[in-house]
Amino acid sequence: MLEQIKQWIEHRRGGKIGSHDPGNLPNPKTPGEQLLTDCRLIVLDLETTGLNAAKDEVIAIGAVAIRGGVIHLGDQFDLILRRPELDIRETVLIHGIGPEALTQGHEIEDALLYLLEWMNGDPILAYHSAFDQKFLEKTLKAQLGYSQPHTWMDVADLMPAFFPNTKTGGKGLDNWADYFGLEVGERHHAASDALATAELTLIALNKARAEGVKTLKGLYDKLHYHRRLQNMHRY
């Protein structure tokens, strides 16, 4: 199995793979003056056995990378974790990963180590990111004892921040995807949802550039400003 992963990783990274060194993993980057036209962003989506972070588990990780405002399909992460002991009867209908696929998944520790390496500490974007962040941090801590905080940004905030007053008919990924006419490969497949989220991110980044937002920090600030505005409206 390990051999397979090595091959798989080699295939994707075009060469060199050492043994993972849990003590020497990339450090998460903080949003600073990195230019949006240069930096790498991770867009991620998880499939889980359920919605409760306290008892449910991650079963699939899909992620794509945006570099310089472009999605590179050669730079992506699409993995089903090997968790045969998990009870997935409740959610199997939504994401379509059956027990068979799960047993063929990858050894979880290796997969997570590779994920951390692949992410390279870059900021992570996700749709309704609080959910993915909770699950991923919990899993990383439990499996690897890893607890360094990545920078997370929520694409569900990013979209209304750059396209305020847009009538999407709802706040979900589907609403925004429909609004921009995106064709989503296979909904509720981690990698498909990650790609759809990444495409929305490209739209937002294009708008950001038009509005003069140039750096990662600028993007991060814009997001927080939007959040505060939302919270103020709530009260």
Binding site: G69, V70, I71, H72, L73, G74, A198, E199, L202, I203, L205, N206, K207, A210
Partner: peptide, 14 residues
């Protein structure tokens, strides 16, 4: 083709 492809977005008029 797919493995070497990138996806770019262009807003109207770009």
């Amino acid at each position: 083709f797919a493995e070497n492809a990138s996806i770019q977005f262009y807003a109207d008029g770009d």
